[in-house]
Amino acid sequence: MAIDAFAPDTAAAAPRVALSEPRVVRLVLIAVALGFLVLFLVVPLVVVFSEALAGGVATYLASLTEPDALAAIRLTLLTAAIAVPLNLVFGVAAAWCIARFEFVGKSVLTTLIDLPFSVSPVISGLVYVLLFGLHGWLGPWLQAHDVKIIFAVPGIVLATIFVTFPFVARELIPLMQEQGSEEEEAAIVLGASGWQTFRRVTLPKIKWGLLYGVLLCNARAMGEFGAVSVVSGHIRGETNTMPLHVEILYNEYNMVAAFAVASLLALLALVTLVAKALLEWRYADELAATRRH
């Protein structure tokens, strides 16, 4: 790297000062960063709550306790309650074989696990229509045996599992890779069973990373729109999740109710962020150093 050694001497006089920017520059940068975040994150959030409360608190509560809204909340909770544990088990299994063993095709497997992150949600829904729709591969068989997948809860759950598929695995793999497998190997050599080793040695080491992945997985599971929209069928009180219910209310000119349900989802997002931040501050060293999603 060529640096002009005989350039102005101001730097030499106060090298420490030169490691930071002038005060003005710092203030400007902070202002730019905050301005950007306020414009893109804070204002939309404020709008959700202000529109939701535009009709007063009574209207707000009424829109949340109306039967269709309750049904949507129930369905959303149910979907997350199925999808998140399944992806949790998968995440642990995938991390166990990828982070603890060396085998041919490992990088391919890792890439494939990442795939749902970059597939458009609409496509995630479409593939299940192609598979389970009346004219899809399994459609006629399902019809004959009266099994309902799409336009019913199983389809919604499947689409949700698809889009939240990598969350737990992506969190655990780098964490477990970093921790290495010496402790587990020692436990096995000392005679512990595989299950004991996992429960007593591995789990305590990864619990916060696990929780972190579950948190993000859950937020996405409850908020997915595109994929679920393709497979839902939009039957009121039955196959509408909260995000779909928001869209329906929006289309009924019922802005206050739409934003009321939306505010519930926004609240969920905020709780997720707070929980996440707490985890990061308290257990920073027990979470993977390279966190990304």
Binding site: L41, P44, V47, P243, L244, V246, A262, L273
Partner: peptide, 19 residues
């Protein structure tokens, strides 16, 4: 502010859309 940066991960896209 640091915690808030992750909001788009946690906020459902439909909510972001209407907002």
């Amino acid at each position: 502010v640091d915690a808030l940066v992750d909001l788009p991960f946690a906020l459902p896209t439909a909510v972001a859309g209407i907002a």
